[in-house]
Design a protein around this nucleic acid. Structure first.
Lengths: 249, 249
DNA sequence: TTCGATCGTAGAACAGTGTTCGTAACCGGC
DNA sequence: GCCGGTTACGAACACTGTTCTACGATCGAA
């Protein structure tokens, strides 16, 4: 609705220049531009805030226009996680410290997810042949190779790592949006308050039914997200090393 | 709309027995009954097929009636995963084979999720104080205790295991529903066909960019869901044992 | 037994959602 | 020049979760 418009009235064709009122001269739509604004909206307003309509509106058009470049919202979601997956930093494998590199790479993946809240929600069920997934898998495989991990173990590890990191990112985002909706309709619901409440709940459990949870309330609620993920990554990589050694033997 | 109905017409009150046409005499609604039919619908028609309206319809009422027993769809989802989590079999810990018991317990959790497709979609971000989650955590903690796992490791392991198993269940369900929608609008899209297509895609990758993926196409696409999960569970439990031993030392 | 307050029940409606249809405009190639 | 396939887009469809509102049933007290 800007720049130039033509009307057909019977045999007469009228060309009208509507001096660009509602925004600058619009470029043509493209899959990239759609993914751009979708990612921007999701990054600053969360997963549920971005819809076909909100994207179209920011692009100055209607939702139907998007379907020329994107088949589905499902496909759009896949494009988003693929775009984000390309940002995962993948180190050059160094056989002398491949395990530390692998752990760091996994933590970096989570950091990238955190920079784009909501995107991770589509990471489960990611198309394994998308460019981002390929890059990711190739990088993890290279690190495993550098560590002498048997091929089959390395292959299955790619799956496990991607699944776990995606799950952590999703869970964090779920709690994030929950805190947001809870804070806008009542008292603040910060992470510390939630953790404290959980701790108290555990500590008040009946002894005969939940003795361990009750006595371990403190350690159950110790540590933030980074601690927990750091631990899990440690476990997985150490387990991978142990099983590699066992396979060699 | 069954059994008995009264009409008020001015000062006159009329009581009419409508001989139970649209169903048996309806009982009162309750949270349990709502969760029952929601779980049944989800089990047989998938996550996206169950809505407040579909539940209400099967209960012979309108969607507004549900909100007297359930605050949200979010809360309903939590009730569903809690209900399912109660079905997780938790073994009596045996210190001589606690590791095998733990592995089996994790696989059993996945089996239960598989029996209720779609429910797992709400498992990420599960309320940790719900009865099902408590039962689950207590059971895992008991197994770790039997294995002499240090408390902090055991506590964080609960998190890791639940997250990973939930993620696997979700991913499986995503592919399941994708296959369903793909088969109803085109040729069948079975698991074997997808795996074969992925294999061919990997094998046809450019050598200079994805040498490992290309050469490892076979092992990357080897094994079904059980194989992959079995491997991941093995890795995690072995890693847990390794780190426990290291902490003792 | 009758009254009255409360709780559960629903119909209707609101503001959204993803998606499709039909038509109009545009663009590259003959 | 024209013309065919792609792109654009308003309108509409069938949904979704949720809220408002009034009506009915229920139960304790008078």
């Amino acid at each position: 609705m800007a720049g130039e418009k033509t009307f057909q009235l019977g045999p007469v064709k009228v060309r009208v220049h509507t001096s660009g009122d509602p925004g600058p001269a619009k470029e043509r739509l493209s899959q990239d531009r759609i993914v751009d604004v979708a990612l921007a909206q999701m990054t600053e307003r969360g997963y549920e805030a971005v819809s076909m309509r909100s994207i179209a509106k920011e692009l100055g058009t209607g939702p139907a226009s998007l379907y020329a470049h994107v088949a589905n919202k499902d496909e759009l979601d896949q494009l988003l996680v693929d775009r984000v997956a390309r940002e995962f930093p993948m180190p050059e494998p160094d056989p002398s410290r491949w395990d530390e590199q692998l752990k760091q790479a996994l933590l970096d993946m989570l950091t990238v997810y955190r920079a784009h809240p909501g995107v991770a929600r589509a990471s489960l069920g990611m198309i394994p042949t998308s460019p981002g997934a390929l890059r990711n898998a190739e990088g993890v495989l290279a690190l495993c190779r550098a560590g002498g991990v048997p091929d089959q173990l390395a292959a299955w590890s790619c799956d496990m790592f991607a699944l776990y990191i995606g799950a952590v990112a999703i869970e964090e985002d779920v709690w994030r949006t929950r805190a947001a909706t809870a804070s806008e309709s009542g008292e603040p619901y910060g992470e510390d308050a939630v953790v404290a409440a959980v701790h108290d709940h555990f500590a008040a459990l009946p002894v005969d039914e939940f003795p361990l949870l009750r006595s371990l309330a403190a350690v159950m609620t110790t540590g933030d997200g980074d601690d927990r993920v750091g631990f899990a990554v440690e476990i997985m990589v150490e387990g991978l090393k142990a099983m590699s050694a066992r396979a060699d033997r």
